[in-house]
């Protein structure tokens, strides 16, 4: 495997989306290529930064309540949702 081929597989390798044999070839290339190996580490790090540093917000209670009304067992509220049927 050359560097071009490795770069095509790079993101899939980061995300665990490679087939077993693809992964084998990819890793064997990394063991011989410092550049691709560094790029692989950087890509993994970038993914981790996004995962850890992007903050998740809680949905506002009013929104939660209104969505829950859709599936509420209360008759009155259920009739309301029927308007959308």
């Amino acid at each position: 495997m050359d560097c071009t081929k490795a770069s095509v597989l790079m993101s899939a390798a980061v995300d665990g989306e490679l087939s077993f044999s693809e992964e084998e070839h990819f890793l064997s290339h990394l063991s011989e290529c410092k550049e691709c190996s560094g790029e692989f580490d950087d890509a993994k790090k970038t993914k981790m930064i996004i995962k850890e540093k992007i903050i998740r917000f809680k949905a506002p209670q009013a929104l939660i309540d209104s969505i829950m009304q859709l599936t509420n067992f209360d008759t009155r509220e259920t009739e309301e949702t029927r308007l959308y049927d």
């Binding site: 095509v8 597989l9 790079m10 993101s11 899939a12 980061v14 995300d15 989306e17 890509a43 993914k47």
Partner: peptide, 9 residues
């Protein structure tokens, strides 16, 4: 795949 690769870069 390629958008992820380029986007992360």
């Amino acid at each position: 795949r390629s958008r992820l690769y380029r986007g992360r870069k």
